[in-house]
Computed example of a mutant assay.
Amino acid sequence: MKKCQILMMMRDKPGIMSKVTGLFSKRGFNIDGITCGVCEDKEYFRITITVIGNKEYVEQVRKQVAKLIDVKKVEILDDEKVVKRELALIKVKSDSKTRIEITNIVDIYRAKIIDLSHEALIIEITGDSNKVEGLIGVMDKFGILEVTRTGISAMHRTEIIKL
């Protein structure tokens, strides 16, 4: 079992997310993560859904989604041919004694501190899921107050042009 991303391009109509999530619910499919929004063609909505399963399970999800009326394109993204990123905001307990150590760790992960108070700070990190998980794991010892994650956004790599 592994995490896979399924890319969907769907006509941007009211209720389109309800159709997609309803299909998942009706078929007993589980959504591990989801990102969506308008894309380069304003008529269409781009949805990236992360599911966990074997090849057959993921292919079944793809086939079911492809049956929806407003679907333009559905494909299973190949890990080797895509760039994936996730955004997370992490609120961590912080005081004058721990702030410098936390700041140093944030710098190592190439993350940013975007909000600061006397009791806590909020860190923004963007990267692959392993990087996000790594920072969350390290920050755990300071006391994580809140975490929010966007889910994975993915895009095909550009072709290498041979001259």
Rank of each mutant, 00 (worst) to 15 (best):
Glu86Leu: 09
Val71Ile: 15
Tyr57Pro: 06
Arg99Gly: 02
Lys72Gln: 14
Ile114Gly: 03
Asp70Pro: 03
Asp140Trp: 04
Ile76Gln: 10
Val92Pro: 07
Lys93Gln: 13
Lys63Phe: 07
Val74Cys: 11
Arg110Cys: 04
Val92Cys: 02
Glu56Tyr: 06
Val51Arg: 04
Met139Ile: 10
Asn130Ser: 13
Ile49Trp: 03
Ile105Asn: 02
Arg85Met: 14
Glu133Ile: 06
Thr98Pro: 06
Thr126Val: 15
Ile90Val: 14
Lys81Gly: 10
Leu87Gly: 01
Ile136Lys: 10
Ala111Pro: 09
Glu124Ser: 14
Val92Ile: 15
Leu68Gly: 09
Asp140Val: 04
Glu75Leu: 06
Val58Ile: 15
Asp79Pro: 14
Asp128Trp: 03
Val51Lys: 05
Asn54Tyr: 09
Lys84Cys: 12
Val51Trp: 02
Leu121Asn: 06
Glu124His: 03
Glu75Tyr: 08
Leu135Gln: 04
Ser94Asn: 12
Ile102His: 02
Leu77His: 08
Ile123Pro: 07
Ser117Asp: 09
Gln60Leu: 08
Val61Ala: 03
Glu86Cys: 02
Ile69Leu: 14
Asp78Glu: 14
His118Glu: 14
Asp140Met: 11
Val138Gly: 00
Ile90Ser: 01
Lys67Tyr: 01
Asp78Lys: 13
Ile105Ala: 05
Asp128Ile: 00
Val82Ala: 08
Thr50Pro: 03
Lys73Thr: 10
Leu68Tyr: 08
Ile123Trp: 04
Lys81Phe: 11
Ser94Ile: 04
Ile102Asn: 03
Leu87Val: 13
Glu56Pro: 03
Lys55Glu: 12
Ala111Lys: 09
Lys63Met: 09
His118Ile: 07
Leu121Arg: 07
Leu121Ile: 12
Tyr57Cys: 10
Ile102Ser: 02
Thr103Val: 05
Ser96Cys: 03
Ala111Met: 09
Lys72Arg: 15
Ile90Gly: 00
Leu68Ser: 11
Ile125Gly: 00
Ile90Asp: 02
Arg110Leu: 12
Thr126Met: 06
Lys91Tyr: 04
Leu135Phe: 07
Glu119Cys: 06
Gln60Met: 11
Lys141Ser: 12
Glu75Met: 13
Leu116Pro: 02
Leu135Arg: 10
Asn130Lys: 14
Lys81Tyr: 09
Asp70Ile: 05
Gln60Trp: 02
Gln64Ala: 13
Met139Gln: 07
Gly137Pro: 05
Met139Glu: 06
Gly137Tyr: 07
Thr98Trp: 07
Lys112Glu: 13
Ile113Asn: 08
Lys67Cys: 01
Gly53Lys: 05
Leu116Gln: 08
Ile125Trp: 01
Ile76Pro: 05
Ile105Cys: 01
Leu116His: 05
Arg99Pro: 00
Val71Met: 15
Lys67Asp: 03
Glu59Ala: 13
Leu68Asn: 10
Ile113Thr: 12
Lys73Val: 02
Glu80Leu: 11
Val51Gln: 04
Ser96Pro: 02
Asp140Ile: 03
Lys112Gln: 13
Leu68Pro: 00
Lys91Pro: 10
Gln60Lys: 15
Asp70Arg: 07
